[in-house]
């Protein structure tokens, strides 16, 4: 593995029972880059994440650079509304220092009303709040790579900042490599320097403007790709 390579995936295969979910996928991720993983629902994007995190069994090799520290932001948490756990307690699983927790919350855009937020139950947060708390938790571990699984439903952040501009800012502030799953092509063009198109197998891989074309999109999403066209700038 080369010095600048952070992650190298070779011949990755994932099976659930005898059903093949990911078939022979290989790609490398360079340090300080931003890689987007796109594909239709059920293409195996989240499964790919779980495999490279070592959460599920797989065939093939997944090699992380030595001493890499991964921050993982899952798509969602299944926490009931009455689950007795506050945001403060959740973040303290990661970090005992209140000052650092405070800084992490500011960095994900919680500037005011932090005391109220900290006392709020995790299960009662809105989708956007939960996403940001999860990112804060990931950032608290001082990672050098952030794996971000986009929620399927649209998430409301603030008027000024989307979850992607937030991640982009964190990348610059904290010197991070970012791997994210997205459903929106426009986001990929705007924030990613690399894209992996996935639909069980690797459809395309490389810089978005070079590899995402009509042919690969047709392979990825089916023949009718006109709906995606207006996202191209």
């Amino acid at each position: 593995m080369e010095e600048k390579t952070l992650l190298s995936v070779k011949g990755l295969k994932v099976k659930f029972n005898s059903h093949l979910i990911i078939d022979d996928v290989s790609f490398d991720v360079e340090r300080d880059s931003t890689l987007a993983i796109i594909g239709p629902n059920g293409a195996g994007k989240s499964v790919l994440f779980r495999a490279i995190l070592g959460l599920i069994p797989y065939e093939g090799t997944v090699t992380w650079a030595p001493k890499v520290k991964i921050g993982y932001v899952p798509q969602k948490l299944f926490v009931a509304k009455d689950f007795p756990l506050t945001v403060a307690e959740f973040l303290r699983f990661k970090e005992g220092d209140n000052q650092k927790i405070d800084e992490a919350l500011v960095s994900v855009g919680f500037k005011e009303n932090k005391t109220k937020l900290l006392k709020t139950r995790l299960g009662t947060l809105s989708g956007g709040e939960l996403q940001r708390v999860l990112i804060a938790s990931a950032v608290l571990g001082s990672p050098n790579v952030l794996l971000f699984d986009e929620p399927t439903s649209g998430v409301d952040i603030s008027a000024e900042e989307t979850i992607y501009s937030l991640i982009d800012r964190l990348k610059k502030e904290k010197d991070l490599t970012i791997i994210f799953i997205s459903h929106e092509l426009q986001v990929v063009y705007k924030y990613a320097d690399g894209v992996l198109c996935l639909n069980k197998e690797k459809i395309c891989f490389g810089p978005p403007r070079e590899v995402v074309d009509k042919e690969s999109l047709a392979k990825l999403y089916g023949e009718d790709v006109s709906v995606y066209k207006h996202h191209e700038h």
Binding site: L53, Y72, P74, L77, L85
Partner: peptide, 17 residues
């Protein structure tokens, strides 16, 4: 207790750490 509780909240999150 912290590890156990995080594992209950999200097994994936706990394992990823």
């Amino acid at each position: 207790s912290n590890k156990l509780a995080l594992g209950i909240v999200s097994e994936d999150l706990a394992k990823s750490e």
